[in-house]
Design a protein around this nucleic acid. Structure first.
Lengths: 151, 151
DNA sequence: TGAATGTCAATGCACTTGCATCTAAATTTC
DNA sequence: GAAATTTAGATGCAAGTGCATTGACATTCA
């Protein structure tokens, strides 16, 4: 005897639209600055957080919600650009460890400037501090795992 | 003399993550049902809303936030699948009007079942009615145009 | 009216993505 | 400890995307 559930599309439609709008704006800003897309940024950022330990591709896969081949190829491109190195993984002959290069760190910092500058007008200028807090809190609730009987 | 603006990333990061999570779930459900992706659905839906008047490609471009060539090619695929027809546009020799076929309407209804079923556990089960209302309201605020000096 | 400019839509090409499959190494099972 | 299974990661191929350009018609303006 629970109350009727809310209409999911009342949430999803503006969510999808806001996402596409903001994403498009950020990607355009990056491109205009001669930089690569957010997928590159996200990977570089994770590697930077990982520090000297680096990250295994399968770890990135989880963190970035990318398919396995997505990480494999994205890492290829980053490696070709000189932003990361692949290192044989001691202890697991199948695996490898991805490590950020100094050049990779440099470019990530550069991207960050553009990223943050593009985000500000898209988000901050439309919300008060309280609204932003409440919004991120509510969005966080969407990230809870689906009910077991639906997986 | 305004207060300091909120951190946009506190909103953007969970927003992007929630979006990717939900999108992935819905697309997977559609694929598993042997249906095409949400891009097809969105186009079909707009055509259905437009009724007998149909829609011009450039109108879809605005509604769906797609690039011009994106609409052109998506419409190609839908047409090849028999879900829409292109009709010469009386009054503008450059243009055309896209019209939903009965088969297109049928398939859209079929997709809707899957779409809605996948959305429910992803969203409704994580939010109360009040939370959902507040969330869609806050997301709506993000859709306001950027300040003029930032365009 | 005729040339310049603007708008609607398609497309060639390079790059990216999705899917299925493959190899190699690790782990489990008997 | 050899065979079967699982896991890490790469890759061939088909399909989709982004960018720049083109072609066709419309509109503007001298």
């Amino acid at each position: 005897m629970t109350m009727s559930a809310p209409d999911p599309f009342a949430v999803w439609l503006p969510l999808a639209r806001a996402h596409k709008t903001i994403l498009t704006a950020v990607e355009a800003a990056l491109k205009q600055a001669g930089l690569r897309g957010l997928d590159w940024y996200d990977l570089l950022w994770e590697l930077e957080c990982a520090g000297d330990a680096g990250l295994r591709p399968y770890e990135l896969q989880e963190k970035l919600l990318l398919p396995q081949y997505g990480v494999s190829r994205l890492a290829d491109r980053l490696a070709k650009a000189g932003y990361l190195t692949r290192q044989d993984c001691s202890g697991d002959g199948r695996g490898q460890v991805l490590l950020l290069t100094p050049e990779g760190a440099r470019i990530r910092a550069q991207m960050w400037e553009v990223y943050a500058a593009a985000m500000e007008p898209a988000i901050s200028s439309n919300l008060s501090t309280g609204e932003a807090r409440r919004l991120s809190e509510l969005l966080g609730k969407l990230l809870r795992p689906a009910p077991a009987d639906k997986i």
